[in-house]
Computed example of a mutant assay.
Amino acid sequence: MAKLFGNLNLVMIVGLVLSIVVMLAFAPYAPVDVNSVFRWLHVFFGILWIGLLYYLNFVQVPLMPSIPAEQKGAVTGHIAPKVLFYFRYAALLTVITGVVIAWANNYLVEALTFSGAGAIALIGVGMWMALIMAFNVWFIIWPAQKKILGIVEASAEEKAAAAPRALIASRTNTLLSIPMIYCMVSANLG
């Protein structure tokens, strides 16, 4: 057991295999199709994305000032770059899988243009919030964090200017995540 749980890649593979077994076992009751697979992936990547967003905002960022200077390098040099890698790609894959779901169910254009009513308009609001959040991740937070973490060369002034930009974009995403989650779970579109 220690060998299994000590290896994250192996845990993920076993989790994937178990998911496929469950899908096949319950296929008569919950058909396995593009829609169901992409919904499952959308929820998985969304949990990863928002979970890391909340980790950054509720744990890492607030605790950084209290971490002794000699220990900050462990966070900025090792933990933060890995967190931001999964954060970026979870955002991207959440958006892609959401777009596939909307496209496969023929409401993508109606949702994005708010030309649909009721649940389609609600999901459109959630989609736009997610798109704004993904934009913030890739085009504001990540470029700023590359400077802050020393992944790209930046002067002390550039690093100092990048920090509030990253924080504002990250807190904007935290703010938007709350109504976005409501939109996504309340629309109930097939």
Rank of each mutant, 00 (worst) to 15 (best):
I123V: 14
F87G: 03
S186F: 04
L16S: 00
G51I: 07
E110N: 15
K159Y: 12
I96W: 12
G124K: 05
L149Q: 14
A27K: 04
L24N: 10
N173C: 05
K159D: 08
V59I: 15
A74N: 08
A104G: 10
Y29T: 07
I96E: 13
T174Q: 13
L189G: 02
I120A: 03
E157N: 13
E70I: 11
A119T: 06
I47N: 01
M180H: 01
A111Q: 07
T76R: 14
I140E: 04
A90W: 13
Y182R: 03
F45V: 00
I67E: 07
I20Q: 00
L175C: 09
I67P: 11
V34I: 12
L63G: 02
M23I: 05
A161H: 12
L53F: 09
A161I: 11
S19M: 00
P31E: 02
S115W: 03
V21L: 06
A160V: 11
T76E: 13
N173T: 10
P143N: 13
K147N: 10
L131Q: 02
N35R: 07
A187Q: 02
A121H: 05
A2M: 04
H78I: 15
V152R: 09
A160R: 10
I151E: 14
F38H: 01
M23P: 01
V37G: 00
N106S: 14
M23N: 05
A2E: 13
A121L: 04
S186E: 05
P81T: 09
P81A: 11
A91M: 08
Q71S: 15
M64L: 15
I123M: 13
R39N: 05
N57S: 15
A130P: 01
L149P: 06
M127D: 03
P179A: 07
P28G: 06
Y55A: 12
G150T: 08
L41W: 03
Y107M: 05
